[in-house]
Design a protein around this nucleic acid. Structure first.
Lengths: 339, 339
DNA sequence: AGTGAGAACGCAAACGTTTGCTTGATTTTT
DNA sequence: AAAAATCAAGCAAACGTTTGCGTTCTCACT
């Protein structure tokens, strides 16, 4: 027991063949006779032969492994995205190496280093909140290791990415509220520095414009996503001359803070004020009060798509030479889910 | 650009050394003179040399990779456990290959196969709900690939495992309620078939016994963890002759269902009836009403510990020979968190 | 009988690194 | 001054698999 696993060489020796013939036999190469092919496969089963991936990795110069860096697995958005990545990768016989940056740039750099030395074939990355430059990913270019960013993407053009079009999502959300006859719609947006905030703002404005309504900037309040900050935003909105009858929040957390505070103030949720949010928390339905609609960002699909692109890049790489200037810029349209 | 990465051989050629000397120089081997050592390292930096892990894996016969199979990453319990695994593994310079069974036995078997052919050095497994035998993991024994099970462990003795002692956790919970002067404590337990249910039941009984109180079996109701089933359990408890003033639920989901239903019935939560649960949902604090206490199962620690054990097994494997009969059976004591 | 084709298989190199054994040169010990 | 120890570095094999290029053999066809 605890035998070293059987190798091709051993099979070859037993059958009086060369290692190459055994290898070819196992791969159904045409130049191997049917009888020997059968004999080889037969013995392989008996010996419980399993190809040694380490050797194959080495020989082929590939690890058939994808590296994934996400901020936090415990955020369901990312764990679902990882599921999408995993499903496609496994389908294509790739394995997935997962690591978390915990939203820390230093950690992210360390992980990049780790993956570099591990020689993953490709990388899927969703940036940490604190990452404002991506120099630590530049080195992968030289190593010919493609990277596909998803969701939290850097604001540059010379990269491959998959992301959700927040502008459209917000447009749909605001449009939905307008159709419900709301005429004063508030928005608790994220930090101004975030690209995601700008997109939401744009979507809001676009919805107003398309409906030939005047855009009132005082109805969009930025907040830093904390409970305290959310309350302050709510105060501002509630004291607005045109007190909103509906509020779009940056994410579910903010929505919950806002709803909690509104209830504290005696406001009737989704009656006096309708809430619409972005889907972060799948368990939101366990709540007593939750937004009447959510912008679903389809993390699974984002992951799946990013995975597809990466594998596409990997298989195409051989033929690439001059046309390296084509970057994948995929935007996934979110959908508005009514609860 | 897009140069193939530098190799030891190239460094050797440039410096007129042998590959072996370069290798030793990079590893600070004592038999290499200081000057050459410096020259080698210097050039290595310049050429951006990174050791080719594929070759090292192959040469050493190890992949420095751990395989992890969990049911669902989107369950925060598992994503936190994975964080623990990852943190320790990375510290020891191992990578972590993660895959989800989605609580499906077939998928679990496929993944086991995948990891086998990938030749991970070791395996960390939390079983799918539908897994009732572990034959598909037996093969790893022959390959000398150790497995450590955690949390969802199989009910056999000849394995390594890390799990939480639910009996103690429940004991603490019930004891806590008894100290709060509750004299009729209900329990909405899980399916009878689950080991986890039996442990909770035992803990409940033990707490009663230790406090010299009579155990009333009618106060423990089994349910299948659905909302409907939870309501039925609540009905039974509320109609009990000794209507409970406190209820321990199998998990947070059940607690939320129960609380929702109780509120629907007009019962004052954590006033008329105190709820205590097991920590599954980190975001429970966003709720308006949540259990007054939770049994925290420390998923991070479980993962970390399991990771430690696996690496211990991996490094000790060389010296192991006769004493292969020692199995790690680690139980982690949960702690009662008061909210 | 000679040529050609194709089938069935072997040889050997290659992938990059590590490591036990050797060798040659220099230094220390007796 | 000779023998022994130490230092610095090279040689070559090994890990398991794949693959380009041969080689041998058998037939069939002119």
């Amino acid at each position: 027991m605890s035998n070293k696993p059987a190798t091709i060489k051993e099979i070859a020796k037993i059958l009086n063949l060369s290692a190459s013939s055994v290898s070819r036999a196992l791969h159904d190469h045409s130049s191997i006779g049917l009888t020997t092919r059968m004999r080889v496969k037969q013995l392989a089963k008996e010996l419980n032969y399993v190809p040694n991936q380490k050797a194959i990795f080495f020989q082929k110069g590939k690890t058939f492994t994808l590296g994934v860096i996400v901020p936090e697995l415990s955020e369901s958005f990312f764990s679902e995205a990882v599921s999408g990545i995993e499903d496609y990768a496994l389908k294509k016989n790739y394995s997935v190496l997962i690591a978390q940056s915990h939203d820390d740039l230093e950690k992210e750099i360390t992980l990049a280093e780790k993956f570099k030395s591990h020689r993953v074939d490709g990388l899927l990355v969703s940036l940490a909140k604190t990452t404002f430059n991506i120099d630590h990913f530049k080195q992968f270019e030289d190593l010919n290791i493609p990277i596909v960013f998803f969701d939290r993407i850097p604001p540059v053009k010379d990269i491959h990415y998959v992301a959700c079009n927040m502008e459209n999502g917000t447009y749909d959300a605001v449009n939905f509220l307008l159709k419900k006859k709301h005429r004063s719609i508030g928005m608790i947006n994220g930090p101004e520095t975030l690209n995601a905030s700008a997109q939401r703002r744009d979507g809001y404005i676009q919805a107003m414009v398309k409906n030939r309504l005047k855009f009132d900037p005082s109805l969009i309040i930025n907040c830093d996503l904390t409970e305290q900050s959310t309350r302050e935003a709510m105060d501002k909105l509630l004291n607005n001359k045109r007190k909103p009858t509906a509020i779009v929040t940056f994410n579910d957390y903010v929505a919950l803070y806002a709803i909690k505070y509104a209830r504290f103030l005696g406001i009737k949720i989704n009656d006096e004020i309708d809430f619409v949010s972005y889907a972060n928390l799948p368990i939101i339905h366990y709540m007593d009060y939750y937004p009447i609609a959510s912008v679903e960002q389809n993390p699974y699909q984002q992951g799946y798509r990013a995975s597809e692109i990466l594998l596409d890049l990997l298989t195409k790489k051989k033929s690439e030479n001059e046309e390296k200037e084509a970057y994948y810029h995929i935007t996934i349209d979110p959908e508005l889910i009514l609860h």
